[in-house]
Amino acid sequence: MDGYRIVRDRSLAEKIREYWIEAPMVAKKHRAGQFVIIRLHEHGERIPFTVVQTEAEKGLIRLISQSVGKTTEEFTDYHTGDSILDVVGPLGLATHMENWGELVVVAGGVGAAPLLPIVKSAKGSGNQVHAIIGARSKNLMILEDEFREVCDEVRVCTDDGSHGSKGLVTDVLRSWAAEGKKFAFGITAGPVIMMKATAEAMRDLSIPGLASLNPIMVDGTGMCGACRVTVHGKTRFACVEGPEFDALGVDFHELILRNRAYRKQEMEALDHYHSEGCRLLKAAQELAHV
């Protein structure tokens, strides 16, 4: 097996890229909310990515990766025609979908990626879909046009005011509700700290809903429990029982701290990768001079 070929790739924003990858078995089975685990190469780690979109007839899946650590940084060096060694899935449960009526999705940064298939599915189930997309600044915002194509209304915000309103997604959610909008259900995805704030706003506004969690995973099939999260006081495995859980029951504080477990090693891996890259570059330059 030669791995899974990248057939298209492009930059979506600063340090955020999308990849269309040949993975026919996953493409055929995937439903909104599910993810894959990939491994770039023989020395690679296993990391999860939400499947953002599929083209089942062509056997393609679409992944979006933000460069935050060694593996995601290395992923940015993979381009059309390259192959990644392993792709397994679709993992996790599909989003429980029903016609809630007025649905709001709240996306922070790259959290827009897992929410895109969900809004499409929700629209198909007859919901009125409202989206709030937030990012630190304009050059980090992704998928806005695609949300606008599907959703009944999209509101955007940035921390620095460079695009949309200035402020946080929770400010938008609260002001939207203050206008008299009654949301029957909410789904949020993004950085854990942002989901925590969103869940608090949802509680204040009496909006029930889900958070799509992003804990550390290893096998992704329920075997290791690295992805343990506490929901309503009970330990759950996000890979097989999630990744979505009742937003009002998730212990986000614990998740933030658990996601930091390997911060030291992540820095070390990134340093090692860069110094290794420098060494190779230097060697190549020396060869070129000969």
């Binding site: 020395h43 690679g44 780690e45 296993r46 060694k70 593996t71 290893v218 390997y262 090693q265 992540e266 070390e268 891996a269 090692h272 990768y273």
Partner: peptide, 8 residues
């Protein structure tokens, strides 16, 4: 074998 291997 971290960091030769990526898994810590």
């Amino acid at each position: 074998k971290f960091p030769e291997y990526d898994t810590p």
